[in-house]
Design a protein around this nucleic acid. Structure first.
Lengths: 166, 166
DNA sequence: GAACCATAGTTGAGCGTTGAACTATTCCGC
DNA sequence: GCGGAATAGTTCAACGCTCAACTATGGTTC
């Protein structure tokens, strides 16, 4: 925008506005991120009936030995609030892809368990998802750009969520 | 996930699965993008009452000479569907920040017009938004990383939306 | 072992998004 | 200038997310 004079609710001190180059970098990142997330989600949803959010839940469960996980751990893995995950698991339960099971060690806890039907649904969706990521992302970038993308992503991750950074 | 054998709904030919390095690059990008978008949106919403989506609408309007824009053009600029934008503008109208005005040249068209109150709200939110972007993004990266981020973003943009690429 | 606090998860209301159906206007070919 | 297609925008219902309130269990202290 056209550098407005800051009135109230200003964050302590003078605002460090973005210069023209920073604006361009920010816009390029923002638009590409929004468009890519949106396209992958739409593509997956329309071709498999599974949104990217649901897909992430199924993947997380499928990667554990017993194909089950505590609700809170699953929420963490999926960058989801507990409420959101609880709603999502309820909907996946209606589809017969996940079921809930009380946790033996902790009476407060619930386990989300991937059913055979859920695993089959995931098997159907996985190629569609992976091809999407390849087509829209990896096929567009040189190996060097991929390395740079990963470097930037990991750097940001260390700041945004140190527990998830490698 | 653990490379499932692809069953049905396979996208023509053998699936080009991601190798370990590609997985890591993809996850780093995905998590950092989701966390960054989420954090900026929450921060802005809680500190100013303006979501990032609303903010983008206000910014777009403020950047035109007359502070008004056709609904469809505004939707394009904000990566929004027309339906979504129509709902959003209705809600901004209720806040008194935007008003609708029929378009003189095209009887089908509507103009979204930024009000003085809307501009004032934007002036209040802008420093909060910019400081967020700086703190969570630019302050974390070296100039070289920023250049790489921009390069990757612009490359993806040329593929995802050539009209928006530079 | 009672009182208290923390943790795990769910629920419900309100808001926002989606996609399809709809209305109204303009454009195009004749 | 009429009929049909295209375009601009809105509306509605279904779905999903958010936040706060809530239930239930576990842990801690005396």
């Amino acid at each position: 925008m056209t550098s407005p004079v800051s009135p109230h609710s200003v964050p302590s001190g003078e605002t460090r506005w973005l210069d023209a180059d920073e604006q361009k970098a920010w816009r390029a990142w923002l638009y590409s991120a929004q468009l890519l997330l949106d396209r992958l989600d739409r593509d997956l949803t329309h071709r498999t009936g599974i949104s990217h959010a649901y897909y992430e839940i199924l993947v997380a469960l499928s990667e554990t030995p017993e194909r089950m996980m505590r609700m809170s751990e699953l929420a963490d893995r999926c960058l989801s609030s507990r409420s959101r995950l609880s709603h999502a698991v309820s909907r996946l339960e209606e589809r017969g892809w996940v079921r809930r099971q009380v946790c033996a060690e902790d009476g407060r806890g619930q386990l989300a368990v991937l059913t055979e039907e859920g695993f089959a649904a995931l098997e159907g969706a996985a190629p569609v998802h992976v091809e999407g990521v390849r087509r829209e992302l990896f096929d567009q970038l040189t190996p060097e750009q991929v390395a740079n993308m990963r470097d930037v992503g990991e750097t940001l991750l260390r700041h945004l969520d140190p527990t998830r950074a490698r």
